[in-house]
Each structure stands twice: as C-alpha cells, then as structure tokens.
Write a protein that binds this DNA or RNA. Structure first.
Length: 476
RNA sequence: GGCCCCGUCGUCUAGCGGUUCAGGAUAUCUGGUUCUCAUCCAGAAGAUCGCGGGUUCGAAUCCCGCCGGGGUCACCA
C-alpha cells in the first residue's frame, strides 16, 4: 500500500480556532494510524493578510495539542522548504511548463477590467467565468501580470473519502489565476504543486474548497499529475448554527482553552467526535484510541454546531481520569496566589479532594482558596442557611464549642474525624444538616466545599480549630 | 441567480429495508449517596427521523419532487 502522507496546510493570518485544529487533528490521526508522515506547511502566499506572529502561534497551538509533525518549517525534511514564500521559484518553473504546453497564459486585463466583467455577470445573475473573456492573443508572460490556467471545460466525476462519489459539470471549470502579479502563487496552484512534490497522499480539507475541486482536477490533468486521495470535512458551525464557525463569530483561539485549563486530550477527544464516531456508544476516547479507531469513511457529511457545554463535560471526564501526579503537573499554573508557599504534598492532598469537582483547571482558585488562607468570617452563610438561620447565636456558639472540644484530640485523619463527628451528632442531638453545615461553614467560609471530614483532615487540626474559634468570636 | 454539499431529541450522535416508529451522550428537571458543591447511581421529560409523493409485504434507511440550511462563483485561503 502507498505510504500515507498528510499535511496541514495553514495560512498564517492569525490564531487558530477549533475548525483548523480539527482539520490538523484528522490529518495527524490518519498519518499516525497508517504509520505515515504528517507534514506542516505554511501557506503564506497572501502578502496582504500575512501576520508574522501567526506562524509561531500556530506552532505553539499544534504542539500544545500534541499534533507533532514529521516534516515542517522548523524541523525541515526531504522536501524543504515547507514555507511557500520560499518556494516561489518552484511555482514559476511549473508555471513555465504550463506556458510551454499551452495550458497557461498571461492575463492582460487590469483588476478593474476583470472586476467589471464580474459585475456584469453578477448583474445578469450568472456565475462569473473568466474564460468567457479569455484573450485571443495574450502577451508573453513577463511576471508582472497574473498567469492563468487555460482550462479545458468538461464534466468530472471523482471520489471523496467522506462524501462518496461526486460530480460537476463543465460550468465549474474556469481559468483561475496560478501566479499573481506580485509573483506569489495562489493557493489554487501552489498546493497542487507542493502536494505533488511533497508526495502527499491524502488531502483533508474543509467544505469551502469543494466547489473548487473540479478546477483542481483540470489543473492536475494539465500538469499530468495523479491527484491525491481527497476527503472533505463538514463545517464546524457557529453556535447559532447559521454558518460555518469563523473568527467573526468570536471563535476562540485554541490556546485560550489552554489558558482556561482545558486538557489537550479533551480538546482532541471533543474535536474528533465532532463529525466522527466509531459506531459504538463510547464517548470518552484517549488519543491512542483515536489513532487506532479513526477512519475517514465514518466522518460525517453534515456540519455540527460547536457546543462548549459538551466540551466542558468531556474535559471534566478527562480530568477525573488523571492520576494525582499527572493532575498536579497539569495544574501547576492554576493555583491561587496564596498557594505559592504551600508544600507540594499539601497541594496534592487538596487536588485529590477537588479533582471530581474540577471541570477545567482555571476553577482551581475558587474551589481551593480556603485551603491556603483563612477567609474572613461571612455570617451571611449562616443567616441564609435554611436550617441554621433558625438557631439563636447562643445555640450556634454552643454547638461550635462542643465541636471544638470533640475534635480537640485524635489523629485528625478522615476516619478519626468521621467517628468524632458522628459521636457529636449523638451528644448534641442535632441532624447532620445542621451540625455538619455549621462546622463546614466555620472551617471553610465558603458556600461550597468538599466533604467536611475530608476537608478538615487536609486543613489539619490547628487551622480547623482556629477557624471554629474565629467563627464563635464573630457570631453576633 | 448557476453549480455543489447537507437535513434523526435543544446540542453531539447511533441507525445504512424488517431483532429499532428510534438507542447513547450532553444539557434540563426529580430522587438517592449521614452537610454544601461536585462525582456517582436511579428516574423523568425531550425527535410524528425537514415536507410530500413513490417503490416494497415492510423505509429514518431506496427513488422523485419540494422546502429549509450551508458553501462557492477573488490577483483569499
């Protein structure tokens, strides 16, 4: 079987959102699964939209996602360079070949003239076809005018790994620009030359290119190149479902998810299952499982909306699957400020009891603040509690004092605390809803926290008792 | 407007002529897990499979028409 080589061909115009990331992911999954190569190619042929920082930003994004490439602009490879602006001579040479074979010619018109043709077509409610204005005697190409393909309109049928058998009539074929007047090749030309030279076996791309495929097929023929296998991905739709997701819809930078504490494997899982599934009822996949199970033939034809709630759930599921050591590594940058000087072991204990509560790591400060710092006493937590607000200050003080006494001794382990708290229920005759709530509020000063015994065991005797005392002193 | 693609619970989806007039997940709601939040468990509600024809003993699944949504028609990718 032919060696599988895929590429992520990215235009460095800005950050990368989930649409681009999914595209890269599917390329990567296919290459990994088949033991082939994944190539990163920078398609910087549009000088106007070029953004110099975008390349490193995109590289950072792919690295964070774990989508490593075998050949690319930074690590090179047998078909370097992998940045199109460094390959202009190659495109010119291939352009010359087409001129020689009579399949390319100089576009003699000005931009304004072409624009007027276009507007006339639009006005007549007809698709614009440049070839209807093809010059009879074009000048020799000197590199200062656009070079166009001399197309040979005909109907095409082709196979798409996702969409199946496709076809289009000759009206889809036109004389598109191969090389612009600024000397840069268009995407339409450069990607075909590069994919061929770089021995790319599979092109996976988004649906917006579907309408152009017949023109590409025409160019492949003119160049006498065997087209790679093609696969068309459905769109990821904006939340309103009206159109494909784009930066105009405030699509987030993938690295924003990194900053919020989403796990790359959760993003990968989410993106893979947005438009693909393995036919079973499995929802949570490891990256290795995805590599093993992915197939283009099971990719959807229809677009899917980007549902961040589902991503958040999936992220929580992946967080819960991590062992403490791994979670601790991932959480490094997300601790509250006051945790700075806390011992690693203490932080791991805290992490262990909040793990099942974390949906994304940026929640860590809110969830763990009180473990690192005594929060000011907030009596509204008691006065708004539906059971505690019925008790008098004296009664509250009495209960807290009893708790202080009962918890004074023992080893302060979870078991020890549970036992003592249970005894306290008996001696005070209170319900857990009253007694435990009160102690929990006193020791955390937080509306929500992990279980009482677990929390106090981590906080330790000193802090726990001190906080109970502070609560007593501040009741009024 | 031409051409092309798509159309199953709010959302992501299973389903590829009959064990499925629809399964799972998520989101929502309810109950349970000695306190809160979360996890977990149980349960509820939620899709006349875009609509209308046809083929067939039988269709979400095949065919046709219509409607709806999207893409494309750049010296952008």
């Amino acid at each position: 079987m032919k060696n599988v080589r895929t590429r992520f061909a990215v235009s460095p115009t800005g950050y990368m959102h989930v649409g681009g990331a999914r595209n890269a992911l599917f390329d990567w999954l296919l290459a990994k699964q088949k033991g082939g190569q994944f190539i990163l190619r920078i398609e910087d042929t549009d000088q106007a939209r070029l953004n110099k920082e975008a390349v490193s930003h995109i590289i950072d994004t792919l690295k964070w996602l774990g989508l490593n490439w075998d050949e690319g602009p930074d690590n090179g490879g047998p078909h370097a360079p992998y940045t199109q602006s460094e390959r202009l001579d190659i495109y010119k040479e291939w352009g010359q070949r087409l001129i020689k074979s009579g399949r390319a010619y100089t576009d003699p018109y000005s931009i304004e003239e072409v624009e007027s043709f276009r507007q006339a077509a639009q006005k007549a409610k007809k698709p614009f076809l440049y070839r209807e204005h093809r010059p009879t005697n074009p000048p020799k190409w000197d590199g200062n005018q656009p070079l166009r393909l001399k197309s040979e309109p005909k109907a095409y049928k082709w196979h798409d790994e996702v969409l199946g058998e496709l076809q289009a009539g000759p009206e889809a074929i036109d004389d598109f620009v191969l090389i612009k007047s600024d000397g840069f090749a268009t995407y339409n030309f450069s990607h075909i030359v590069d994919d061929h030279l770089m021995e790319v076996s599979h092109i996976i791309r988004s649906q917006e290119f579907l309408a152009s495929v017949p023109r590409y097929l025409n160019l492949y023929e003119a160049l006498d190149i065997q087209p790679p296998v093609m696969a068309t991905l459905p769109f990821i739709m904006a939340p309103d479902g009206k159109r494909k997701l784009s930066k105009r819809d405030h699509a987030k930078d993938v690295l924003d998810y990194a900053r919020d504490g989403y796990l790359p494997e959760a993003i990968v899982n989410f993106l893979a299952t947005l438009g693909w599934n393995d036919g079973t009822e499995q929802e949570v996949f490891s990256v290795d499982e995805l590599v093993q199970k992915f197939s283009l033939s099971r990719v959807h034809r229809g677009g899917a909306k980007f549902d961040e709630q589902r991503l958040t759930w999936l992220n929580g599921a992946h967080i819960r699957q991590l062992n403490i050591e791994e979670l601790y590594k991932r959480a490094e940058k997300f601790w509250p400020k006051d945790a700075e000087d806390a011992p690693n072991e203490y932080k791991k204990q805290v992490l262990a009891i909040v793990q099942e509560r974390l949906k994304y790591l940026a929640e860590l400060p809110d969830l763990t603040n009180f473990f690192f710092q005594g929060l000011p006493v907030d009596n509204s937590l008691i006065t708004s509690h539906k059971q505690l607000k019925k008790l008098s200050v004296a009664e509250l003080k009495e209960l807290l004092t009893a708790a202080k006494v009962a918890l004074k001794d023992g080893d302060f382990s979870v078991n020890d605390l549970t036992e003592r708290l249970n005894k306290l229920l008996e001696t005070t005759g209170q319900k857990p809803a009253v007694l435990f709530s009160l102690i929990r509020i006193a020791t955390t000063q937080a509306p929500a926290s992990p279980g009482l015994a677990e929390t106090m065991a981590v906080l330790g005797r000193e802090a726990s008792l001190l906080r109970i005392e502070q609560q007593i002193d501040n009741l009024n």
